[in-house]
Design a binder for these strands. Structure first.
Lengths: 334, 334
DNA sequence: TTGTATGCGTTATCAG
DNA sequence: CTGATAACGCATACAA
């Protein structure tokens, strides 16, 4: 892997490396003729500056690191697409890492990103992350960080997420207005921001319509594979007339569990889920869903981060941005 | 972003940078006491060698670049998980890029990866890539490259993919043995290796069972969103009694189109699909699928690449590795 | 307008 | 056993 360097060009053209550098860099005082010579030669040899050397010198890389709990997930992969779209045409490269829902791997990964001089971090916290002091420390060292989706109040950084409260409120309201009274809530680990916001929306809707909040109707799942079925069974003992699942996998898992038990939807119970699954239309029965604005979240988060990096945060920015969700009611699903 | 360097340690301990480097590097002649001093201090300050500087010096990075057409895809995201698992415990970091099915972006991305001194490339070709000479050139410069899934005979490199021929043969055979005779084949762009292999398996099965191959029953889709429905309509004019969809999105798209048209499965037509969707069990009607061994493909590909990188290819390796697929027949789907 | 020298963080080589 | 120096590729302050 021999690469052509500025030095090769200098030698070939009987110039100094600095002159070549200047010619390429379009720097101020340079003989137009020399410049032409150099650029042409560089072009011909397909010269590319070595980003590693540049990073070492300038202590930056024009790279944004994205850390997500997992890639094999409709929501996160769409967020990444949003991030890439923005980063790409603002001149940044995006490097993607997975934390695999582990605090340790998240930290290691972030360290890697920092060591490789990523200009900024875009993070959705792993479910194993209870403590973000390691991020705060990086922040104190002036590393730009923007949280998205799974955010944390412990960290004073810009954050971008769906309006989970409103989405959950709307979903719950929709169930109530179709006559449901005992609405089970199947959600994620309780310490995750998303969980709390959706639970709050659920509770607010219940309260608003004068329904009692019943702890027995709430279950917290993890991110394991077959975690959902037992939870559904537990919930069923409390005779719910509806399920509200606060996550993509939970929604599909719940649907599967109900099917397996021959519980008819929507005749026996209603089901509504937070999801980003493009297959919702193909499911049977059709599911009413709260669609997460994945692409927007990615785009907005990337913009926030790049503004931070480029020091454009003089225009005061809202610290916490909520992107609206959308309730999609599919025929005969209620 | 001030990072602690070897120089800082040297200064604090009144040593030279070389001594510190040796102490940390566990290099040969070094006073045990000095070494202890240095390592302890380094530990305390949480010193991390700067990988950028190392890359510049050593002209390598312990980084593997993975280029996939898209991340938002069950198959590819699972492959990535397989790659990560192997790379991780062989001491490599994985950086993920998307080509977005574009030849230009694929080239740019590869250039980036090379410029950043990735030690090797793991590529699944974009659908826009008809010409791989740019990869061959890199290969000639001794850059280790392994292709996976979407491979190319134009490139003499190790490749890892599913046994698409066998999988397609089995699927077709299964349809035939359940009495189907007019099997439509919905597949991907014709120049993609996967397409050709699956088509060959389909044809071989037809031939083996004495059925004629009918061009009218074959349609090539692209990767656009709503490309499938018109193709299904075209196929329907030829009165097929079964559909064999050679891809994840095609399978779901085909299912959706048939549902929309109130064509009953399996009463009117059978449907069988190549897919990696974990939702297949939730679909209605249940789908028979050819499951792609995504995780295995990733693991094997990563192993191949790392062996190449580390020069262990002295043990002659099979140049083209095929991982078996699995036909999963779900109840009442045929 | 161009060339020389220096430094980014690290390690290898050579000298002490 | 340890220190000084050079080199990786590039940009820039300074000298010419």
């Amino acid at each position: 892997m021999d690469t052509i360097t500025i030095k090769d060009i200098a030698r070939a053209l009987n110039l100094s490396t600095s002159t070549v550098s200047r010619a390429l860099r379009d720097s101020y005082e340079i003989n137009p003729e020399t410049k032409r010579l150099v650029t042409e030669y560089a072009e011909r040899l397909n010269y590319r500056p070595n980003p590693i050397a540049l990073s070492l010198k300038e202590n930056r890389s024009r790279v944004i690191a994205v850390i997500v709990p997992q890639i094999a997930n409709n929501f996160f992969s769409q967020v990444i697409n949003g991030i890439e779209a923005v980063a790409y045409n603002r001149g940044y490269h995006v490097i993607i890492f997975q934390s695999h829902e582990s605090y340790e791997r998240e930290m290691l990964t972030v360290q890697q990103a920092v060591a490789r001089k990523a200009d900024g971090l875009l993070i959705s916290l792993s479910s194993g992350t209870l403590d973000v002091t390691y991020l705060r420390e990086l922040q104190d060292k002036k590393l730009p960080i923007v949280l998205f989706d799974r955010i944390s109040a412990q960290l004073d950084s810009p954050s971008v997420s769906a309006d989970n409260f409103a989405g959950a409120f709307a979903a719950t309201e929709h169930l109530i207005s179709s006559g449901r009274r005992r609405i089970a809530h199947l959600t994620m680990p309780s310490h995750i921001s998303v969980t709390q916001e959706r639970l709050a929306g659920y509770r607010a809707a219940l309260e608003h319509y004068g329904l009692a909040y019943d702890e027995n109707l709430v279950r917290y799942g993890w991110f394991g594979q077959d975690e959902v079925e037992p939870l559904v069974d537990e919930l069923l003992t409390y005779a719910p007339d509806a399920f509200f699942a606060a996550g993509d996998r939970l929604t599909l898992g719940c649907l599967g569990a109900l099917k397996k038990r021959n519980i008819a939807i929507p005749d026996d119970v209603s089901l509504i889920g937070f999801t980003n699954s493009t297959v919702a239309d193909l499911l049977a029965p059709p599911l009413t869903t709260v669609e997460q604005p994945a692409l927007d979240i990615g785009q907005v988060a990337a913009e926030q981060l790049i503004n931070l990096i480029e020091g454009k945060q003089k225009v005061p920015q809202p610290n916490s941005i909520k992107i609206p969700t959308q309730l999609v009611v599919r025929a005969s699903s209620m």
